[in-house]
Amino acid sequence: MKKENPVVTIKHLTVAYDLQPVLWNVNLAIPRGHLMAIVGPNGAGKSTLIKAIMELLKPVAGEITFDLGEHLSKKEERNLIGYVPQNGSVDWDFPATVLDVVLMGRYGHLGWMKRPKEADYALSREMLKRVGMETYENRQISQLSGGQKQRVFLARALVQQPDIYFMDEPFQGVDAQTEKTIVALLKDLKKAGKTVVVVHHDLQTVPTYFDDVTLINREVIESGPVETIFTEENLAKTYQKEANEVREELVE
């Protein structure tokens, strides 16, 4: 396995909700061990792209191939792919504690009918500590702040111990402390050789947080290293605005 092989290759991916194509002929290679941001205007299909990669919705056409190692069964491969959904996608009034939710990240490894063991609990506690939430393990999830909920979701993805993470807007509505924790975590994951793909909203922080960026607006506009791709012209093309408007947004 050569290091240069992209970890995920997407070819001609086309997704349509009802009659409208949301993603059109998306071709994308996600480089191994990089932190990649997916950036684009509202309704550009960013979340849809992640969901299609996670096989949570059925595309009209296209194929997605993972290169996570040889001779992996479908189940083993699935467990190497981590998913952090948007904060608002679950019912936070659900009767569960923080530890209960984090433990769910182990379920894929356990498979049907098996119960979590002591080691799974220990790992869950360890990951809670890593996101700075170890004192909250018995807290009811409805009593958490937006940032804390996001960190619980991150810990849940961590206990799954995947090789590649897909995160849908993890920075949305979080406090400064959580943002710092998440950024530090991203750098740690990179150091450990993991790949992280993040749907991101805040244009200003893209160059400091990420190595690569994919600009998307129904189609992939450009994709590659931040230094070469994250330019005013490309952003203007993505957001269909004038270059000076984009500049103002970046400086703000």
């Binding site: 959904p85 659900f94 379920y107």
Partner: peptide, 15 residues
């Protein structure tokens, strides 16, 4: 539990 709380994660993990 997982399919009720977070169907998307359940699907991603093979349940």
């Amino acid at each position: 539990q997982i399919a009720t709380f977070d169907p998307a994660l359940a699907a991603a993990l093979g349940f």
